[in-house]
């Protein structure tokens, strides 16, 4: 038997190609990364930069033709009161939704991560997953049913003889309106509902990473459960909350469908972008509006990264 130290088996085309790739590991990585990087880099980033570029153009107010010259005029328009209101309203809504989602979501995540075992663990997991993945439009639609004047919520208030309360609430300016389905409160509820799972999952992930022994250690050192929660668990869950807030904040900033279906006629950034690029044909202003959420998110992400939120994603 010949005692070859090196085998030449499988020396076909694939074998030789494999040898080449082994000798040049950088080439293999390059070949692997090329298609996705090209797709995302050219199609996605290319489009994104094209959009950004357009925000530096302006539109001729009389002819409605885009002038391809560098100007900051379009950005200045964002600060006109009517436009700036839209930005402010959207940011306030996004912040409110984020706080609301954290408040409603934290107990669910906390229970699922700390106390749910076995069957209940699966129920809670699917219980968050199902709404997360079920159709966005269907979820919005369900709230149109709920909030309608003849719908279930009004019916409940009437049945409980609390109609006066609802009417008093709707009489409050800004958050009220003719009915819940055309009020800012309605918009808030739908946003909260639709983005809630995005808040729960990262919090749960962060809490689940807290070793049980650490909580026992805290109790062992004399901390009452409330103190353990406050000094150990909550700081460790905070990156999860921030990670979740990235989703809720970003998703609210860019949504234009929910306020269009449930809410008052006051516009949000997404609606402004949609309207300016569509019927108004003012692509530069639409682009400038689109830059606002990007900038806001960039700042937000920068802060979040410093808080270590990305580990909880």
């Amino acid at each position: 038997m010949s005692m070859q130290a090196v085998s030449d088996r499988g020396a076909g085309l694939f074998g030789r190609l494999s040898d080449t790739l082994w000798r040049r590991p950088g080439l293999l990585i390059f070949l692997l990364i090329l298609p996705p990087a090209a797709w995302l880099g050219i199609i996605y980033l290319g489009s994104l930069f094209a959009l950004l570029a357009q925000s530096f153009f302006s539109i001729d107010e009389f002819t409605g033709i885009i002038q391809y010259e560098f100007t900051l005029k379009t950005y200045a328009e964002l600060f006109r009161p009517s436009n700036f209101d839209i930005i402010l309203r959207t940011v306030v809504m996004a912040a409110a939704v984020t706080v609301g989602a954290a408040a409603v979501g934290f107990p669910v995540a906390y229970f699922a991560a700390r106390y749910a075992r076995g069957k209940w663990k699966a129920i809670f997991y699917l219980g968050v997953m199902m709404p997360l993945w079920s159709s966005y439009l269907v979820k919005v639609y369900s709230w149109k049913l709920i909030l309608a004047k003849e719908g279930i919520l009004n019916w409940m208030f009437e049945t409980l003889h609390l109609g006066w309360f609802l009417n008093a609430y709707l009489a409050i300016p800004v958050i009220g309106g003719n009915s819940l389905s055309v009020s800012a409160t309605g918009t808030f509820l739908v946003f909260l509902y639709v983005w809630l799972p995005f808040m729960i999952l990262p919090i749960q992930a962060a809490l689940e990473r807290v070793p049980h022994s650490m909580l026992e250690a805290s109790g062992d050192l004399g901390a009452r459960p409330a103190q353990t929660f406050r000094h150990v668990l909550f700081p460790l869950a905070l990156p999860g909350v921030i990670a979740g807030s990235i989703f809720t904040f970003s998703l609210t900033l860019g949504d234009y469908i929910i306020p269009q279906i449930v809410g008052s006629s006051r516009r949000f950034i997404g609606q402004a972008v949609y309207a300016y690029q569509g019927t108004a044909g003012n692509i530069p202003l639409a682009a400038a509006f689109a830059v606002v959420p990007i900038l806001l998110m960039a700042v937000y992400l920068w802060i979040a990264k410093r808080q270590g939120a990305f580990d909880a994603l």
Binding site: I43, Y44, G46, S47, L48, A50, L51, Q54, S250, L251, L253, G254, D255, Y256, G270, V273, Y274, Q277, I283, A286, A287, A290, P293, I294, M297
Partner: peptide
């Protein structure tokens, strides 16, 4: 990034 940004970017591209 919000879907509207992906959408409008692609559309204008």
């Amino acid at each position: 990034l919000p879907g509207i940004i992906t959408g409008i970017s692609l559309r204008s591209a």
